[in-house]
């Protein structure tokens, strides 16, 4: 075990994957230096043939990854900020997410599309997106969004080994998070959620950096006699309904904390899915805390208004606990 930062944990997995499989390559802007640290140092080991520094041409290298995968490689495409997926959206949604399906299953596309994601402090509306809901809705893309270095490393290994396009979103708010993780490679399967804190009264499904907010709030509420269970989905496609539903069946209450816009978002999907599957076990109306439906603003004060904070989540949990609405009468 050794302590590793969030991005360094992914770097360890990427390095191990490149060592075990020579068809794994990296493409993206400034990947020789590694803007977020995920590709840092790999150029020295693997050379410029496998660590391919591209021009600022997202459509070319995001789409290039599709052709490269179809022709025998396992590309790790470093899209940098997740807002830049929109620049290459034809290649993401019309090509990468479609080729296997349209071919009747002939093609495997083992691609990782990696990007740093979410507000990172006054980066404004074109460098702060959390596009996971759009990508979840595409059909044909797996989507991963971890919350800890341990999960980040294991999920990265699984993402690279997966025979499908996997969008791997690394919440930039987690960059300074550090913990002890195994030095050897390991894999956490895609589609398996993790209960980050056990509780009895209310389930909070929280994503990425909001997992830590939720755990903190849970600790605070414990002294008030409210026992909060925190479920981290980790993978969004596939989504681990079994773990989420089992938790809600136990607690009877649901709050979803999603660092993204409200309309058609992950939070809406989780509440709808739980309502369909476990309506009879709900003691109160489910609740969600999300961004308002606005672009991410620049000024720290404005960005703070958008963010989901501990207070927002605590309020939502208290509302859910204190609103004994019988299911069906809401």
């Amino acid at each position: 075990m050794a302590r590793a930062y969030f991005m360094a944990a992914m770097n360890q997995a990427l390095r191990a994957a490149m060592e075990e499989d020579e068809t794994v390559i990296v493409m993206g802007e400034d990947v020789d230096r590694g803007v977020f640290g995920v590709t840092r140092g790999l150029i020295d080991t693997f050379g410029a043939n496998r660590i391919r520094k591209t021009p600022i041409s997202e459509a070319a290298f995001v789409g290039g990854a599709v052709g490269a995968a179809a022709a025998g490689l396992k590309p790790f495409a470093h899209v940098m900020f997740s807002s830049f997926f929109y620049v290459a959206m034809d290649q993401v949604a019309n090509q990468a997410a479609r080729l296997r399906y349209m071919s009747g299953g002939q093609v495997e596309l083992p691609i990782v599309y990696f990007a740093g994601t979410g507000p990172s402090g006054s980066a404004a509306a074109q460098h702060s997106e959390n596009p996971h809901s759009i990508l979840m809705h595409t059909a044909g893309l797996k989507v991963v969004m971890p919350s800890t270095p341990y999960d980040a490393k294991g999920l990265m290994m699984a993402a690279i080994r997966d025979p499908n396009p996997v969008v791997y979103l690394a919440d930039l708010r987690l960059s300074r998070r550090r913990e002890s993780i195994p030095e050897d490679p390991y894999e956490i399967p895609l589609g398996v959620a993790d209960v980050k804190r056990q509780g009895e009264d209310v389930t909070v499904v929280a994503l990425a950096s909001l997992v830590h907010v939720a755990v903190d709030v849970a600790g605070k509420l414990e002294s008030d006699g409210v026992s909060v269970e925190v479920v981290d989905p980790r993978s969004l496609v596939p989504l681990d309904w079994d773990t989420i539903v089992a938790s809600v069946r136990k607690t009877g209450r649901l709050v979803v904390a999603d660092p993204a816009r409200r309309l058609c978002g992950l939070a809406a999907e989780v509440i709808a899915g739980v309502s369909e599957r476990a309506w009879d076990s709900l003691h109160s109306r489910p609740c969600r805390v999300t961004w308002p439906d606005i672009p991410v603003p620049f000024s720290p004060v404005l960005e703070g208004r958008l963010d989901v904070g501990a207070d927002d989540l605590e309020q939502a949990i208290r509302t859910t606990m204190g609103s004994p609405v019988v299911a069906g009468s809401a």
């Binding site: 391919r52 290039g64 599709v66 052709g67 022709a71």
Partner: peptide, 13 residues
């Protein structure tokens, strides 16, 4: 872009 990526595969391999 796909054709370009196929060319990348030939070159890398």
């Amino acid at each position: 872009p796909m054709a370009t990526g196929s060319g990348i595969a030939d070159e890398v391999l």
